[in-house]
Design a binder for these strands. Sequence first.
DNA 1: TCTGGGGTCCTAGGACCC
DNA 2: TCTGGGGTCCTAGGACCC
Length: 419
Amino acid sequence: MFAIADCNNFYASCERVFQPKLNHLPIIVLSNNDGCVIARSNEAKALGIKMGAPYFKIEQFAKQENIKVFSSNYALYGDMSQRVMQVLSQYAPRIEVYSIDECFLDLTGFQADLTSYCVPICKVVKQWTGIPISIGIAPTKTLAKLANRLAKQGQSKHGSVLDWSSIDEADVILASIALDDIWGISRRWTEKLQQIGIHNALQLKRANVSLLRKQFGVVMERIVMELNGISCIALEEMPSPKKQILTSRSFGEKLTEYHDVRAAVTHFATRSAEKLRRQKMTTQTLTVFIQTSPFDKNPQYANSATLQFDCPTNNSSLLVEAANHGLAQIFKSGFFYQRAGVLLPELWAEGVEQISLFDVADSTKSKQLMRALDDINKKHGKRSIVYGSKLLSRRWQMRQQYKSPSYTTNIMELMTIQI
DNA sequence: TCTGGGGTCCTAGGACCC
DNA sequence: TCTGGGGTCCTAGGACCC
């Protein structure tokens, strides 16, 4: 038996915790670079703001309707997420933190009425963190997600909690659910399913499984089984180690100069190395890529370069050097670059890598240097020590015009109260 | 002027092994 | 007249998630 707890309009709710005057007012949160809408309060949804809408297209409307706009503040959202997850973890022997705002709970074997068990969870999370959540309960993850969606739509007699098994005519409900509201089914598959006469969740539940397996593969087969109440997607308690690490950004403005892009790439390589070390991993491969904007009417260009290290490493200096080397190979002047990134596509656990027969580098020294670097940056602020090529330019940095303070993670940005 | 940033899994096909 | 059986690894592309 699964429950899924899902924070309502999570990013918008995080902003509201620290500005309660915004309760009941329309709020939107923008993606990095203040590009697209990625979260909306219910009031903003009611005004017709679409998920993913480019901000510059709705800016006028937002002003006109007095919608409160925020840049993404991931320091805040990440910290608030941890608080919510910590509370939830007290209510089940096993949980799976599925995303920044969602968590599966294993309720297998619980004797109590599950709805009565979960209603207080919502209350406590709200009281202790300020974040409103909804809970869906079902024998499979897929059905739990559907129950959660129905709860959010106000279709439960118990407020924000809905147990799938308490629904009298589940098939009638299923018939009213669109295909792309099902977890794992998006636009392409919706179109493909409609072509073979399947138009809603009930039809998919009753469809011929082996036929669907042939046409769509095992992923679709699992979805159909799960709709039928047969659990195929297990709870994954331990986060599995990362298989790749990507650091990339759109630039705050289009860049044409090599040194501007180089500064960005140096930063991405440094960040990637930091992520590697935090996860105690190394990489033997680095890919650096650059691209112009697909929306740009100017000539388009995109390219990448992949470099190999002699031995797996997480040394920032080596990654920065490789990224700069790769950039030199692919950079062409005359283009308006919009985005760049550094990808580490295959990772190793630190210490298990194959070293080179001829490697004479003192790896102990390298490790000590990186530890000193990380310690200093931790103690004295994130960017106390940086690589020189990052200082060539700041023009790549993203726009964040509407960012709220990092209330919970930066002592300098604590909330102030006037009496 | 202005359109995000991370990830994962599966499959088919080709190359290769004994 | 007739030419096996059982595998692995890698890659690209396509789909999906939040």
